[in-house]
Design a protein around this nucleic acid. Structure first.
Lengths: 207, 207
DNA sequence: CAAGATTGGACAGCAGAACTATCCAACCGT
DNA sequence: ACGGTTGGATAGTTCTGCTGTCCAATCTTG
């Protein structure tokens, strides 16, 4: 365990805590006071830290997602499970208007979702919140996002397809889903600043 | 204040707490035990809740962002300030390789950033974390994201340009930056599921 | 084989975040 | 005059995510 702590950079008590919380599987017991941890444990530990630090997930969500990895049969399964586990189901339901706006967007793109999909509700609720501030999101922006994300998804999936064993493939799918989100957001912010600057410059020139 | 609580749906003690924390400005004092709250207060309160609930910001970050709104002279300022205040500057620095990958992407797109930009570091660190899991992000994916986000940013900015007074314009810029993030992520997840399904179907047909 | 370090397991403690509850004196409308 | 707010202060609560301490069983090393 000292080695695990060393290699992961985490203090021993924290690793014990993660074991208790079921975030990492117990080591192979070798006698009553000793267990053996392997490469897989280290990998898991790093994944936990990445999900917490980079994807900003809470520990209970991390556990839930990892359970999903362990039980999923296919990539597709794993991603579906991860999505399901990510969105909080509490709080007020989404408005009919927003749900309709989402469904119409899905239609325009020929996409489908389970009617109880967590993503459908989450999106509708986000739209509600913004509309509640007097700044509604129209179909044009929704379509722009959908177009943009369709393009990105194609490139994303190209790299996942070279899958190895089942567990690695599933893990990669989850990494791709969750850990690329902060990457995308950072790129978005950078793009926003630059497009905004270009536009301001153009306006100034025209004036 | 009872009215403010009523209209915002928040309990009175919570509003008192937000006042204490400086998240909303104090009401116009009318005598020693009474103050008047107006439409602006209600608006602020709703904005705070949206930033907490939808954008998942912590209260200290919300305060920081709101301070930015109040002090910003222009839209551009406000967005810059918001970005700066969003990313945690603690933790390990980004690796040189990742920083270089970011800079090269910026080059390919003709974009520029202050070298100490919070976004630049945040992006590089996210790339480091993913690479640490043995699943590095190549320039192709980075470019795909940048392309996608450039397209989206153009549409986003179209709607902000019809600015009213300074305060509203700045507020809208911050809403656009922060509250549209969950919208984008939800669309991304939906797109991912659908593109993945399409691809699986095509593969199955080819087989 | 004795001495000292390490491990797993149980449990208590702690710091930060976001509320929530209680008091109290000043005050307002009736 | 008086019951019901209000602002202000202060203390308490719940939830997370760790840390710290203790202990007996065991492993290692001399």
């Amino acid at each position: 365990m000292a080695e695990l702590s060393e290699r992961s950079g985490l203090p021993v008590p924290t690793i014990k805590y993660y074991l208790r919380e079921g975030l990492i599987p117990p080591g192979d017991a070798v006698g009553a006071t000793r267990a053996r941890y392997g490469e897989a444990h280290l990998r898991r530990l790093r994944l936990v830290r990445a999900l917490v630090d980079v994807a900003q997930l809470r520990l209970d969500v991390v556990r839930s997602v990892l359970d999903g990895i362990d039980n999923a049969r296919t990539r597709h399964d794993a991603v579906g499970a991860a999505h399901m586990r990510l969105s909080r189901t509490d709080g007020e339901p989404a408005s009919h208007e927003s749900l309709r706006a989402v469904d119409e967007m899905l239609n325009r793109f020929g996409w489908t979702l389970a009617p109880d999909s967590a993503n459908r509700t989450a999106l509708a609720r986000a739209l509600d919140a913004i509309a509640g501030l007097g700044f509604p999101v129209g179909p044009d922006l929704l379509d722009a996002y959908a177009n943009a994300m369709r393009g990105a998804a194609v490139v994303e999936l190209n790299r996942v397809d070279l899958a190895e064993d089942r567990e690695t493939a599933v893990e990669h799918a989850v990494i791709g889903t969750l850990l690329l989100e902060p990457v995308l957001l950072a790129v978005r912010r950078i793009a926003e600043v630059n497009v905004s600057r270009e536009r301001t410059a153009r306006e100034r020139a025209a004036r």
